[in-house]
Amino acid sequence: MSTVFQLAHAFTARWEGCLSDHPADPGGITRYGVSLRWVQDLARQAREECRRLARACDGCAARSTPECGYYSLDLDMDGDLDADDIRACTKAQAAALFKKHFWDKLDCRNLPLPLAVTLYDGAVNMGPARAVRQLQRAMNTTGDAQLDQYTPIAEDGIMGPRTGELAEALQEAGLEFFAARQTLRLRDAFYRDLAARRPSMKVFLTGWRNRVKALAHYLAELEREN
């Protein structure tokens, strides 16, 4: 695993720890940040992709190997996906799943360090589309206010080439840490709004906001070191 990913995951892993099965958590039983709902959603997507490609399990070279989208999610290797898989999940398995489905899919390795760290942790905690939209909005706000030449990007939750180009422009102007902090402000506002709209989620609000504050401190440490 890359050094940059390790820097990002080192923070996220602090906040994704023990086994949890809180009744207000829509993700269900969770360990090291891996929730049952997320794993089952990934399995459904893997099956849909196989159907789209008209690929059957019988005769598939990837069947029962780590290359199989479904099998790689069967963490206790008993042939199904249920709460026991979450209970069996290890730190290494969680890190590998997050790298594949968040870090790699969002192409975080090509982002400036603070934006990569911020996006990755947001994707793990809130889902990738929302995390990307917050990043795009923060970069638009920063670019509009700070760059001499700036063209806004779509805030569509998709990590396309224009998003990467704006991130690079912000880095060249020395604004990558500023944009990351702007992203955290949007994330904090989202949590407060979510708790206001859905009272059952208020139980998580303090923890969410503490995580945002801790990430701001982590970014400050990285900025001093770079």
Rank of each mutant, 00 (worst) to 15 (best):
Q136W: 04
Q136E: 06
Q136P: 00
R137W: 09
R137P: 00
A138K: 11
A138C: 12
M139T: 06
M139S: 07
M139E: 10
N140R: 11
N140D: 13
T141W: 03
T141Y: 01
T141G: 02
T141Q: 14
T142K: 02
G143T: 08
G143L: 10
G143C: 02
D144L: 07
D144Y: 03
D144C: 04
D144T: 10
A145V: 05
A145Y: 02
L147H: 05
L147S: 06
L147K: 07
D148S: 12
Q149N: 12
Q149A: 10
Q149S: 14
Y150P: 01
Y150V: 00
Y150G: 00
Y150I: 00
Y150H: 09
T151M: 06
T151V: 14
T151Y: 09
T151W: 06
T151R: 14
T151P: 00
T151G: 03
P152T: 07
I153M: 08
I153P: 03
I153Q: 05
I153W: 03
I153L: 06
I153G: 04
A154M: 11
E155M: 11
E155I: 15
D156T: 06
D156Y: 07
D156P: 02
G157R: 15
G157H: 13
G157C: 12
G157Q: 13
G157P: 12
G157A: 12
I158H: 10
M159W: 04
M159I: 11
G160N: 09
G160W: 09
G160C: 09
R162H: 05
R162M: 10
T163L: 04
T163R: 03
T163G: 08
T163S: 14
G164V: 01
G164S: 06
E165C: 03
E165I: 03
E165G: 02
E165Q: 14
L166C: 04
L166W: 07
L166Q: 07
A167H: 03
A167D: 08
A169S: 15
A169Y: 04
A169C: 11
A169G: 06
L170N: 06
L170P: 02
Q171D: 13
Q171S: 10
Q171V: 02
Q171I: 01
Q171C: 08
E172D: 15
E172L: 14
E172H: 11
G174C: 10
G174S: 09
G174K: 09
G174V: 11
L175E: 09
L175G: 03
E176I: 09
E176V: 11
E176R: 10
F177H: 12
F177L: 07
F177V: 12
F177M: 08
F177Y: 15
F178P: 00
F178Q: 13
F178V: 15
A179F: 09
A179I: 08
A180Y: 07
A180E: 08
A180R: 05
R181A: 00
R181Y: 06
R181L: 08
Q182C: 09
Q182E: 15
Q182F: 00
Q182Y: 02
T183M: 14
T183S: 10
L184G: 02
L184N: 03
R185P: 00
R185M: 02
R185N: 08
R185W: 01
R185I: 07
R185Q: 12
L186W: 06
L186A: 04
L186T: 02
L186K: 01
R187M: 11
R187H: 00
